[in-house]
């Protein structure tokens, strides 16, 4: 079992290293130079000589491979480089912005899970076929809605039409309602689809009919047999959901003008501040890898069929 754990952790570290390398190649090694954009600006009035000095102070003139090694070393020790535009360590910027994004993403995820479970299980219990069809059509609609537009529509309806939530300086909790809804609705869609499909799959399994033949009612069978089996495949898309969640959070923050990783990212792209974007990308990849690692390690606990296989490796 311990060897299995090590091998999985090793694989995760490998993917993370590869993601770092990809981000480095994309953002540092290829042309496009934030320093030049900032300091060549005529308003600064710097001479080419002074610009060279600044470049040297950022380490932009060291050979690429050395830059890579330094950057990798920095990431491993928690030094994520300097933001050219803001002139502060990237770590500080992240530290200032992560909590707010985490709150939004965490609440959004929770709401998405509740929404997905509600739609999926209600649709399988729905007494009328029209109701079932309507509920099952919801995820396709949700997945087709652009996040940013959804946010704007929600603002339009709840802030301007119904005037339920003030646009400017709403109370903290109230201010989170619309962003969380904006994020949760599209993120819930893939989860709902997987849940509905797996509930349908499991319901056709013979063991469900056998449980019915023992005298279990529909609701009994759903809660005692179908639910747990149906949830298992949904867990495997946790990584995919995380990606949706991060992308969605970036857009949601922009729409609602909230501080966070999203705004940081947008500023970084606008000023071609590669160090910041690289840090965000590696952070997101790390989160993805950790979530998948957790799923991999948790799965055998939830699905006894895999326990023996995992154990057999030791």
């Amino acid at each position: 079992m311990r060897r299995h754990l090590f091998s999985r952790v090793g694989q995760a570290a490998l993917v993370l290293w590869a993601a770092f390398t990809v981000a480095f190649i994309l953002l540092q090694a290829l042309p496009g130079d934030a320093l030049l954009i900032k300091y060549q600006n005529p308003d600064m009035g710097l001479s080419p000589r002074e610009i060279e000095d600044i470049r040297a102070s950022y380490g932009a003139d060291t050979p690429l491979f050395l830059q890579y090694v330094q950057s990798l070393g920095g990431f491993l020790t928690g030094n994520l480089g300097y933001s050219v535009q803001a002139g502060v360590p990237v770590v500080d910027q992240l530290a200032a912005n992560v909590p707010s994004t985490l709150a939004l993403a965490g609440l959004g995820f929770l709401a998405a899970v509740i929404l997905a479970a509600a739609i999926a299980f209600l649709s399988s219990l729905a007494p009328f076929s029209w109701l079932r069809d309507a509920l099952q059509a919801l995820p396709s609609l949700f997945i087709s809605v652009p996040v940013f537009w959804l946010g704007i529509v929600l603002i339009q309806v709840f802030s301007f039409q119904l005037k339920l939530i003030p646009v400017i300086n709403p109370p903290e909790a109230l201010g989170l309602v619309l962003p969380v809804a904006t994020l949760a609705i599209p993120v819930s869609a893939p989860l709902t689809q997987v849940l509905i499909r797996s509930i349908d799959d499991v319901r056709t399994q013979p063991f469900v009919a056998v449980a019915r033949a023992r005298g279990g009612s529909n609701a009994w069978v759903l809660s005692h047999h179908v639910a747990r089996n149906a949830v298992l495949p949904a867990i495997t898309i946790a990584g995919v959901l995380l990606g949706e969640l991060i992308g969605g959070a970036v857009v949601t923050e922009t729409v609602f003008g909230r501080n966070g990783i999203g705004q940081l990212t947008q500023e970084a792209v606008n000023s071609q501040d590669a160090a910041v974007l690289q840090a965000v990308v590696v952070l997101a990849a790390a989160a993805f890898v950790l979530v998948n690692l957790a799923v991999d390690l948790l799965y055998p606990v939830l699905d006894p069929r895999l326990k023996r296989k995992a154990g057999a490796l030791t």
Binding site: Q205, P206, F207, A209, V210, A211, A213, H224, H225, R228, N229, L232, L302, D303, P304, R305
Partner: peptide, 12 residues
Amino acid sequence: PQDPTSSLNPVA
């Protein structure tokens, strides 16, 4: 039932 393998809930 017919097929003992699929007639038992795999996670119970």
